[in-house]
Amino acid sequence: MTSTSLESQLVIGAVLFALGMIGFLTRRNLILIVLSTELMLHGVSVNLTAFGRYHGNPQGQVFTIFVLTIAACEAGLALSLILTLYQRRKSLDVYLWGNLGEDDLPVFTGGGTAQQTKPLDPNADLPHLTPAGRAPATPATKT
């Protein structure tokens, strides 16, 4: 076991983390977003095991096991959420889910068009909020 090996593995972990982050930020497919987070977790796991090896104790691996557990939980929940979302919009496009944004902003499509141009009444099941930064409509507004 050498120090160089540790540093090399840390480099690999950092690269994997960065790649996962790019994936998370750029992909529009809900499933690929979740997978990108898993890639980031891999980077972390590599780091943990490398340190465990370096220090000669099992704690790095123990933590990796916990990471694995949480990743499994996350994957399960994410999958069920994705399925629910898919059922609503019949699409895995994350851009169909911008309801929290300001109503009157032009839809940001990131270069392409949302597959489902007219969603099935996207706000039907959500409370309608007054957009921030605009005066609420009152019956008698001052001229």
């Binding site: 790649l19 930020l25 992909r27 529009r28 497919n29 496009d93 499509t109 990131g110």
Partner: peptide
């Protein structure tokens, strides 16, 4: 294949910041 897989979101910004 769906067209949303053919478009990256904010590609420059995301990749630059990540790198």
């Amino acid at each position: 294949a769906s067209n949303y897989d053919h478009h990256a979101v904010q590609p420059v910004m995301a990749s630059v910041m990540s790198f």
